[in-house]
Design a protein around this nucleic acid. Structure first.
Ligand SMILES: Nc1ccn([C@H]2C[C@H](O)[C@@H](COP(=O)(O)OP(=O)(O)OP(=O)(O)O)O2)c(=O)n1
Ligand SMILES: [Mg+2]
Ligand SMILES: [Mg+2]
Length: 1165
DNA sequence: ATCCTCCCCTAC
DNA sequence: TAAGGTAGGGGAGGAT
């Protein structure tokens, strides 16, 4: 038995309908019941998530989570160790050669940074693991690549870059030598660095095949629904008779004449009745279609409102394939000539086709048995382009888009479903009409050839009695032979040798569908389109209309206008109306009043309920549920347990005739895609690439046509199942595994090139031999309107740093903050100016000014802050271009400011360590301590390992989520308030200090020591040493050291996205010391009393954001942990599609490259 | 809890 | 020969 029965409803012998292609005879669990078997072959696709496969990968970071744990543990230990040793030996005993010197070791050095660190520590200097202009006085490095030198220049202006021998020589001579002779000359060693890992060409692939194998094995044993088991069931007509007989009772008398009786239906003699009915209807041709409803045939859904786009689209490769619209849908172009050769497919084809879709010229030219691959993707580069033109499923699948184009007002217009319809949906007095054309495709193609109406007719591509072309639609005489849609033509012919086959006529379908909907809209406001031949009408409000009369009227008008019959069902909800239609067919109508619902449903086979397909039917059959009455026996709970919450409820409701859906809503589409699962055969990767390109073009055009862009891209691949037979169906896909991977990028796009890049990346996620590919699809979701997304990018420039969420009014957040800062500045100015650090951000102001320039109507004009309010550190760290621009704005005074400030660095570093000369004792901030304790092992990894050790894979793995189980999180923060730099605390505004102490009622006693420490700090500046020795466990609970620290909650409640995310990330895995340092420093620095700011937190937020900006920008090169944090932050921003670009645009270019690569190159165009 | 990914199911 | 597309709903299981 061939397992490839896919979606074709095959011959009566293979009645098994389509389970899954792969259904094999022996899985008792049934097709749908299979537990989820995920392919294990996902690889980079889960880079952003799921560490599930990390164990199967070999990389230095294969287990980043435990790595972090271990590292943090070490940090802690070392912290304690060094803290104590520093107070004893380090500070007191050693020669303070390097007093005031704070070095940052960049890149590989001889001696190692470890050794250098040792020297610094021993001789009174400082060693920074992270570069910060504020804390570092000298950069030590042996060699750096060109690009790095350039970077260094731009933002470390003024800082000496010195060779490590300076340290050694100084130690040797026991005094601090001038660093000048040791300045790094322009040598470049081109040492491989982290940044190069990012650009490495080849991703890791070695192990994928292995993974793949296991997944295949899995699949071997799975599935296996027996197609044999479930057959023959519905070939019998008895069922039908039964239900038909039953439904006769339900018919309201008035419609009896239009009814197509069950007996007749199943009877050869039925054609007479049919003819009679038809004639009857035809005779009543008094209803004329008003002109205004004449179809416009603008069918092509890819047409854009804008001209340019339109033109562009028309030029596209597939510009015409969707144009199903013809000049006249009319009852005109009949195939009179074909009347003689009733059964001649080609004869009819010739007349009906009349040059519409055709392109037969090419196909007939082949003739030569140039192989059956003629129509495959092989040897046919235009395959994609041509394929859809001839696909019926494509036609009906895309019809809705064209419909929406015709009636755009329905999208948000009066049809809104909200209150009135919702009300009526639960209202048992609602009245719903469902209308569906009878055997639509057949009806249309024979609508003007009466003599075929009582003969068995089907629409199909092929008349070949041995062919595997599918029947699209069969008329009712044909159905009496058992011919059904989806069946292979050879099976249909076997059942009904005289079956007449007509070719497709998509243009006419389109035209008739337009007429159909014009009529519906004329009679009812609330029309919900289901498909090109089917719709729901909600006529609940209209009191004076008899639903049955209305339905009758509509049907008659449809027939008069189109020459095709329609059937209608009337009931109190959509479910019952639809069931009624089925009963009514063909050419009839049926009303099921509320009180008849139960009687109607009880004997109804569950398969007849919409929503129950083959899978559910089989599952239920196993529970001996065949009819609705049997289904009712099951409790809702058990249904929900077995089938899921929603599905269970649906089953429970439907079996009782309950359906709460409301008619009318056109929801904006959630996804757009294109796929081809026929004729797909590749001999090599090149074929595949070409196909993917065409698919991308197609999708890009469709996105364009709909005026949307998307962020999530899903590539679907049908892969020939192992050991699967050749497909039964000619050029079919046969028995396949369905695989998919998706990628969500930060910025919505519809751009072909970007699409290609994304798809290329996605394709790489699969591990697959292209020869095994039987189908490919690309779907785009997370759609956004194109003008909205454009707006978004425009709006996103500056302010969003402080905006918290999409729903937050930017002005509410920004406005006050900016203002507040201004206030703060003023206050400080009037105060003493001792610390005016960080008050304003030149970058923001620059951008703001830009905005003002371009949009004179700028809401919040802000003039550049007074010179004295500028943060020198920030100014200095600006890239040269920005600096000079800003300098211009300030009339060249910035340069002066810079040179002046060099002498008095203290101004903006009172709470931070002072690079030179630290104010007396150079009080250790907590983060200093921390920083010094940080082992440089990460630096080693970054700077010294051969590139191969940090593969891209390692990077991805690193970014994978870390287990959040509590034990994995190690607090990087100091364990006690007493470890906090007193100077920091000193600067805290009263409210906060009070707040802190209030939070620690049990620790009141420490107030004294706190005060004491502060006092000490004031006098001698060596507070830390004094206090750090006496670690007080009672102080555990303060703002910085709680568990989680208080600041985490504060951040989470800060209404500032970035802070929230940082808090999240911290909660999951801790933060690198340097980031923590920034948090700490910022919180204290930007703390300013303000009337509008009850607890000062807003100031901290603002300050932190500013600092983060610097952080991202200043970083010479992030070490692994920092990279990790940055990635996690970026990933979250990308997911939320907020602030991503703002951050991305200012991060280190290397990092940008890496991120861009992760997003398939969708970022830098 | 809520989201996301990777499916499966359903309908035309 | 033959054109097995499209989109939404939803579930399982994992990440957050
Ligand atoms: N497997 C299928 C199902 C449907 N269609 C197309 C042809 C149908 O004519 C049209 C409408 O589908 P219906 O389910 O409404 O079927 P018909 O209109 O053909 O018959 P019925 O009288 O049962 O509505 O969609 C198709 O090509 N392949
Ligand atoms: Mg129909
Ligand atoms: Mg239909």
């Amino acid at each position: 038995m061939n397992s490839d029965s896919s979606r074709s409803a095959n011959s009566s012998a293979q009645k098994s309908k389509r389970i899954r292609d792969n259904s094999s005879p022996s899985n008792p669990s049934g097709g749908g019941g299979n537990k989820r078997k995920r392919s294990n072959q996902k690889t980079l696709g889960v880079a952003w998530g799921a560490n599930s496969i990390s164990s199967s990968r070999k990389s230095p970071f294969s287990d980043f989570g435990s790595y972090m744990v271990e590292k943090n543990r070490k940090l802690h230990n070392q912290f304690n160790l060094d803290a104590s040793s520093a107070s004893h030996s380090g500070v007191n005993s050693g020669n303070q050669i390097f007093q005031g010197v704070s070095i940052f070791v960049d890149g590989f050095t001889i001696p190692s940074s470890q050794e250098l660190r040792g020297y610094m520590l021993k001789y009174g200097g400082r060693f920074e693991n992270y570069f910060s202009r504020r804390s570092v006085s000298h950069i030590i490095c042996s060699n750096l690549p060109d690009s790095k030198i350039k970077n260094l220049r731009s933002f470390s202006r003024g800082l000496p870059v010195v060779k490590p021998t300076w340290i050694l020589d100084s130690v040797a001579s026991n005094k601090l030598l001038s660093w000048v002779p040791y300045q790094l000359d322009q040598l470049v060693n081109n040492q491989p660095r982290l940044s190069e890992f990012f650009s490495m060409k080849k991703g890791p692939t070695v192990e994928k095949p292995k993974i793949c194998l296991t997944s295949e094995k899995k699949y071997e044993t799975e599935d296996s629904l027996s197609p044999v088991a479930m057959n023959l069931k519905d070939t019998t007509l008895s069922e039908v008779n039964e239900s038909v007989g039953y439904r006769a009772e339900l018919h309201s008398d008035s419609e009896m004449n239009l009814q197509y009786n069950a007996d007749a239906k199943l009877n050869e003699t039925s054609s007479d009745d049919l003819e009679a009915a038809k004639l009857k209807d035809t005779s009543i041709s008094d209803v004329d279609v008003s002109i205004e409803y004449k179809p416009q045939f603008c069918g092509s859904f890819e047409m854009l409102p804008q001209k340019d786009a339109d033109v562009e689209v028309q030029k596209g490769p597939s510009s015409e394939k969707y144009n199903y619209a013809g000049e006249e849908p009319g009852i005109d172009d009949v195939g009179q000539s074909s009347e003689e050769n009733i059964s001649s497919f080609h004869g009819l084809s010739a007349s009906t086709h009349n040059g519409s879709t055709n392109s037969d010229g090419s196909s007939s030219s082949m003739a030569a048995g140039s192989s059956k691959l003629q129509h495959s993707t092989l040897e046919n580069p235009d395959f994609v382009e041509n394929y859809f033109k001839k696909s019926r499923l494509h036609f009906i699948g895309t019809w809705r888009n064209r419909y929406y184009k015709r009636f755009p007002r329905l999208a948000n217009g009066s049809n809104s479903v909200t209150s009135p319809i919702n009300g009526s949906s639960h209202d048992q007095s609602a009245t719903i009409i469902h209308v569906d054309m009878d055997c639509f495709f057949v009806s249309v193609v024979i609508r003007n050839i009466p003599k075929f109406k009582d003969r068995p007719v089907a629409v199909c591509h092929s008349d070949n009695p041995k062919g595997t072309a599918e029947i699209s639609s069969a008329n009712y005489p044909a159905r009496s032979y058992g011919v059904k849609a989806g069946m292979f033509v050879r099976d249909a012919k076997a059942l009904c040798p005289h079956l007449v086959i007509f070719p497709y006529d998509f243009k006419s379908y389109e035209g008739v569908a337009d007429q159909f909907y014009d009529i519906l809209h004329k009679h009812c406001e609330k029309v919900q389109a289901v498909s090109c031949d089917e719709a729901f009408l909600d006529i609940s409000g209209t009191n004076n209309v008899d639903p049955e009369v209305l339905a009758s009227k509509i049907r008659k008008e449809i027939f008069d206008t189109t020459g095709c019959t329609a059937s209608a069902g009337i009931a109190t909800n959509m479910l019952m109306a639809r069931l009624a239609t089925k009963t009514a067919k063909p050419d009839g109508q049926c009303y099921i009043p509320l009180e008849k619902v139960d009687d109607y449903l009880n004997p109804l086979p569950i398969k007849d309920l919409p929503g129950i397909g083959h899978a559910l039917e089989e599952k239920l059959k196993k529970r001996s549920v065949l009819t609705c009455s049997q289904l009712r026996m099951l409790s809702k709970d058990s249904l929900q347990k077995d089938f899921g919450l929603k599905t269970g409820e649906m089953l429970w409701n439907y079996s009782r005739g309950v359906d709460n859906r409301a008619v009318g809503l056109i929801q904006e589409s959630k996804s757009i895609g294109a796929e081809v699962n026929w004729g797909v055969r590749f001999k090599d990767f090149k074929d595949c690439q070409c196909f993917l390109l065409n698919l991308c073009k197609e999708v890009s055009l469709r996105l364009n046509g709909c005026g949307v862009q998307g962020r999530t891209f899903t590539l679907k691949i049908k892969k020939r199942r192992k050991n699967a037979d050749e497909p039964t169906k000619y050029m079919g896909c046969g028995d396949c595994e369905n695989l998919s991977h998706s990628l969500t990028v930060p910025v919505a796009t519809d751009d072909l090139e970007i699409l290609q890049r994304i798809v290329k990346q996605l394709f790489g996620f699969f591990v697959i031999d292209v020869k095994e590919i039987r189908g490919i699809g690309l779907q785009v979701s997370k759609l956004q309107n194109v003008d909205i997304s454009r707006q978004g990018t425009k709006r996103n420039s500056l302010d969003s740093w402080l905006s918290s969420s999409a729903t937050t009014n930017v002005e509410n957040v920004i406005g006050p903050s900016v203002k507040e800062v201004a206030n703060i500045d003023n206050e400080k100015q009037s105060n003493s100016g001792t610390l005016d650090q960080l008050s304003a951000d030149p970058i923001s102001h620059l951008i703001q000014m830009e905005n003002n320039r371009h949009h004179s109507e700028a809401l919040n004009p802000v003039s550049p802050p007074p010179l004295c309010n500028l943060d020198i550190g920030v100014i200095r760290s600006l890239p040269p271009e920005l600096f000079s621009e800003l300098n211009e704005i300030y009339g060249g005074k910035l340069i002066d400011l810079l040179s002046k400030s060099r002498d008095k660095n203290e101004v903006f570093s009172s709470s931070i360590r002072v690079p030179s000369q630290g104010s007396g004792g150079d009080g250790l901030t907590l983060s200093d301590i921390q920083g010094n304790k940080v082992q440089s092992e990460n630096k080693h990894i970054v700077d010294r390992s051969p590139p191969a050790q940090i593969s891209r894979e390692g990077l991805y793995t690193m970014m994978a989520p870390i287990s959040t189980s509590g034990s994995h999180r190690i607090d990087l923060l100091p364990s006690s308030l007493s470890q906090v730099d007193p100077s920091v605390l000193q600067e805290l505004p009263e409210p906060l200090r009070d707040d802190i102490l209030k939070q620690l009622p049990a620790h009141r006693g420490n107030e004294l020591s706190l005060e004491h420490a502060i006092k000490d700090q004031r006098e001698s500046g060596s507070g830390v040493e004094n206090t750090s020795g006496s670690v007080d466990p009672l102080m555990e609970n303060d703002l910085w050291s709680g568990n989680p620290p208080l600041w985490v909650d504060k951040f989470k409640a800060s209404n500032c996205l970035i802070l929230e995310l940082f808090a999240e990330i911290y909660t999951e895995s801790g933060l690198p010391g340097n980031l923590y340092e920034i948090l700490l420093r910022t919180s204290s620095q930007s703390w300013h009393p303000s009337a509008a700011d009850s607890d000062g937190w807003d100031g901290a937020i603002y300050g932190l954001c500013e600092l983060l900006k610097q952080y991202f920008k200043l970083k010479i090169e992030l070490d692994i942990e920092e990279t990790y944090v940055c990635f996690r932050l970026l990933k979250r921003l990308a997911m939320k599609s907020q602030l991503f670009l703002e951050v991305f645009n200012i991060i280190d270019p290397y990092l940008q490259g890496a991120v861009n690569e992760i997003y398939g190159g969708s970022l830098k165009v």
